[in-house]
Design a protein around this nucleic acid. Structure first.
Lengths: 157, 157
DNA sequence: GCGCAGTTGTTCAGATTTGAAATAAGCGGT
DNA sequence: ACCGCTTATTTCAAATCTGAACAACTGCGC
């Protein structure tokens, strides 16, 4: 009765495994991050992206794209992080429509404090089980998927 | 300045590819599903699980576990689906604490109507790029991950 | 220069999600 | 039959997320 007949059993198994397992994995990893750090996974990702950016700052739009956040979500999210002192918002000098999120020292410290345990979680629950060949396969598969998705933007009807 | 030094570059690349790409993939696939069907991806997953269940019905708790939903989320979600006539809720005969979600004919019809296009999306954006060997690798990797996660439940302090 | 289509962020209202506490039963011993 | 403890689900309030509408600004073509 499943009506998924147009995928082969192998395809169905793979698709379900990816969707469910990545869901469960991220739920677990986020739970552990929260236990140890007062940061959500989204907070963490914001901090990582800003820490990697030149001058520790990014335009809202660029940051949203990297995080796969809807614009209004990022506005809200940066707002909560600003209240906690992890980032500040500054008007963008070159384009007065825009604003930039800037990582504070406290934000960087929070990231540095959280990273080791978080990365341990990632290892423990995922990477430790994946050998080098599989790692390369994952990178190749998902990088290609991502490239195609980015290349073929969603239709906006 | 990334402070992710405890993962090798290959590990980091793989982890990021998996997290971001699966995120982007699901966002896109959900968007297409919504365009074509009035169903969210969560709706769709509920319908699939119920359609596979004996007698098209499942205990709330079992369904929540399969969907990786917090209990209160499932209560709310089934509520919205009930309003749309896709499922009904019935008290569980064997255990009067419990209740069951039951797929209606309309729910099954909605699933059948949505499935072909949805599965085409899944193929187009993901499965078509993955050869048989990679498919097997994905299944193996994520199934194992999932088993370990399920086996080692989150600590509840 | 001017007008105006397109971009960038924000705001707002409403939908969804979460987590803690409440509710309602089951279950084993007494 | 009556505790006291566990389990299943719901309720409730607060946090988060989404999409549509908006305000400010850019930069192109005239």
């Amino acid at each position: 009765m499943s009506d998924e007949r147009s995928l082969s059993p192998a395809e169905l198994a793979a698709w379900r495994a990816v969707v469910e397992s990545s869901q469960r994995l991220l739920t677990r990893i986020e739970g552990e991050l929260r236990e140890q750090s007062d940061l959500s996974l989204a907070d963490y990702h914001v901090l990582v992206r800003l820490s990697e950016a030149p001058d520790r700052r990014l335009r809202m739009g660029d940051l949203a794209a990297k995080l796969i956040f809807a614009p209004s979500r990022l506005t809200y999210h940066i707002g909560t992080m600003e209240k906690r002192g992890l980032v500040i918002r500054q008007p963008c000098p070159e384009d007065r429509r825009g604003s930039e999120a800037v990582l504070t020292d406290a934000g960087l410290a929070a990231l540095r404090a959280a990273a080791p345990e978080h990365l341990r979680s990632v290892r423990r629950h995922f990477l430790d089980e994946v050998d080098e060949a599989d790692l390369a396969a994952l990178t190749r598969i998902f990088t290609r998927t991502d490239e195609r998705l980015t290349a073929a933007p969603a239709e906006s009807r």
